Computed example of a mutant assay.
Amino acid sequence: MFISNFTVFMPSVLTLVGIPGLESVQCWIGIPFFVMYLMAMIGNFLLLTIIQSQRSLHEPMYMFLGMLGTTDIGLATSIIPKMLGVFWFHMTEIYFDSCLLQMWFIHTFQCIESGILLAMAFDRYIAICYPLRHATILTFRLVIQIGTAVTLRAAVLVTPCIILVKSWLKYYYTTVISHSYCEHMAIVKLAAGNTWVNKICGLFAAFAVGGFDVIFISLSYIQILTTVLRLPQKEARFKAFDTCITHICVFLQFYLLAFFSFFTHRFGSHIPPYIHILFSSIYLLVPPFLNPLVYGLKTRQIRSHVVKIYYARDS
């Protein structure tokens, strides 16, 4: 394999550009990102506090919601501090191993979030299609096992991609990453030589998680909607549908943004880089920001506890 004299062998430090083409206004772009991050932290910590403190919420749906909140906190924290360092303080350098660690956390939390959304769809499927068996099927032990399996699946699928970057990619054309955080394909594109193994590993992990979860989540909600439409009473249909609309909204906003970023990163060469990087940065922050708002507004039990906390603070 021919290696150009302009390549770098195993760089120890990489440079994050931020948002290519928008470097002059990144300091202003960082403000809404910081506000969203702050709101995501407050909202998810409040959600976790309410679920943990109220015994009436120690049910499968709220336990999965607690797992989702914890994942959102981890996902947002893996990205925003370093990103704001690039935007506001020009702290563009990052150690190669630190970059790989950030990459591992980001993609692992993404996979975990996808798995939790699948688990929540399964919970709603059992609750609506088999309501009398819900308590016996989704026991506390099974919920913990599902959470553990989702986490292990994410780690098993993401870790080989990180190992391959470290062991397979030895030479790099440049050490400058045209991105605001360390992302798998953004690193692979810097490498000299053959990168097909890394690309295949990344595609396999993406489709093994995203493809599998989207198919089964969609099938679950098709079954749910079919069951809901068969309910004899209009009020019962409305109540069942209302409990699912929140999950459907969260499901759509997570996967639509994720697939847009995924396909534009690989096949959207005609899309300006700043648009792709901006959307890639936004889509990872939108779920942690919106999820507590959506569930807080649409879930009556959580909304009532938030109101109690608000009035207790004012009294």
Rank of each mutant, 00 (worst) to 15 (best):
F2R: 11
I3W: 10
T7L: 04
L14G: 09
G18K: 10
I19M: 07
P20M: 08
F34I: 13
M39P: 00
I50L: 11
G69Q: 04
A76Y: 05
A76W: 06
M83D: 00
E93Y: 04
I94C: 04
S98A: 13
S98W: 13
S98M: 15
C99A: 11
T108A: 03
Q110G: 03
I128V: 07
P131D: 12
L132Q: 15
H134E: 14
V150F: 06
V156S: 01
V158H: 11
I163W: 02
V165A: 06
K166R: 15
S167Y: 07
W168Y: 10
V176R: 05
H179C: 10
W196T: 14
A208V: 01
S218D: 00
S220W: 02
L225W: 02
R230N: 09
P232R: 04
A240L: 01
A240Y: 00
A240W: 01
I248V: 12
I248E: 00
L252M: 09
Y255I: 08
F259E: 12
T264I: 06
H270S: 12
Y274G: 01
H276Q: 13
L278V: 03
Y283R: 07
L284P: 02
L285F: 08
N291M: 13
Y295T: 15
Y295I: 13
K298T: 13
R303L: 13
A312G: 01
S315N: 14
